[in-house]
Simulated scan of single mutants.
Amino acid sequence: MSTTAPTDSLAALYADNHSWLQAWLRKKLNCSHRAADLTQDTFLRLLVSGRLPEPEFSRAYLTQIAKGLMVDQFRRRQIELAYLDALAQLPEVQAPSPETQALVIETLSFLDTALNRLPVPVRETFLLSQFDGLTYRTIAERLGIAPATVRKYMLRATLACYAALEETSQKPKHL
C-alpha cells in the first residue's frame, strides 16, 4: 500500500474506479443518491488518509472502505430513529429544535462508536451501570468479576466517552 497520495495517482484511481464503485453501491443500497454520496465519501476518505492501494488491490480496498461507510451510515440511522422515537414520546413543547436534534444525534453516534470500540466486558459493564442503573457490586456479581474490575472498566468506558465528546466538540459543525 502506498503511503503517499500523489494527486495524479488519486485522479487515476478515481477515473478507473468511480463508475464501478458507484454502480456497486447503487446495487447494494438500491438508491442512486446514497450511492453517489458514499462513492464520494469513499474517495474523500482516501484523500484524507493519504494512503492509496496498489493498483491490483484498488477495488478490494475501495470496497472495504465503502462497506465500512455503509455500516457507519446504517448505525447512525438506527441511532437517529431511536432518538426520534424517544422525542415522539415528549410533549411537543419540550421537543428540542432541529439544530439541537442534529447535534444530539451526532453526539450519540460518536458515543456509540466509542463504546463499540471497547472490549465487550467493558462496554457491558458501562451499559449495566448507566442504562440499567445497577450498582458496581450487582454488576460484579452478574458478570462474575471483582468490584475493583468493575471500577476499572467504568473508568475505561468513561474515558472513551469523554474522548468521543471531545472529538465531537472539535469537529466543525455543518448545519
Rank of each mutant, 00 (worst) to 15 (best):
D72S: 07
D72L: 02
Q73H: 12
Q73M: 07
F74R: 14
F74A: 14
F74L: 15
R76I: 05
R77S: 14
R77H: 12
Q78S: 13
Q78Y: 03
I79Y: 05
I79T: 04
L81C: 08
A82Q: 14
A82Y: 06
Y83L: 04
Y83E: 05
D85I: 01
D85K: 08
D85V: 02
D85Y: 05
A86P: 07
L87D: 01
A88G: 11
A88T: 05
Q89C: 09
L90N: 08
P91A: 11
P91N: 14
P91K: 09
E92Y: 02
E92S: 10
V93C: 06
V93M: 08
V93L: 11
Q94C: 08
Q94H: 11
A95T: 12
P96D: 00
P96Y: 00
S97G: 03
S97V: 02
S97T: 14
P98I: 01
P98E: 08
T100E: 10
T100M: 05
Q101I: 03
A102Q: 07
A102D: 05
L103T: 02
L103V: 04
V104I: 10
V104T: 06
I105G: 03
E106V: 00
T107M: 12
T107A: 15
T107R: 12
L108M: 13
L108S: 04
S109H: 07
F110C: 13
F110M: 12
L111C: 07
L111Y: 00
D112G: 09
T113A: 15
L115I: 08
L115S: 04
L115N: 03
N116M: 09
N116F: 08
N116Q: 14
R117C: 08
R117H: 13
R117D: 14
P119F: 06
P119S: 15
V120F: 10
P121H: 08
P121V: 09
P121N: 10
P121A: 08
R123N: 02
E124T: 12
T125N: 05
T125Y: 03
T125H: 02
F126W: 13
F126H: 03
S129R: 10
S129T: 05
S129N: 08
Q130Y: 03
Q130V: 03
F131N: 03
F131S: 02
D132L: 12
D132C: 09
G133I: 03
L134P: 01
T135L: 13
T135M: 13
T135F: 06
Y136F: 10
R137H: 15
R137N: 13
I139V: 15
I139Y: 10
E141G: 15
R142H: 13
R142S: 15
L143V: 06
L143A: 11
L143W: 11
L143D: 11
G144K: 06
G144F: 07
G144V: 07
A146T: 14
A146K: 12
A146W: 08
P147A: 12
T149S: 15
T149C: 08
V150T: 05
V150Q: 02
K152Q: 12
Y153F: 14
M154I: 06
M154F: 06
L155D: 09
L155H: 11
R156I: 07
A157Y: 01
T158P: 00
T158Q: 04
L159T: 09
A160L: 01
A160P: 00
C161V: 08
C161H: 01
C161E: 05
C161S: 09
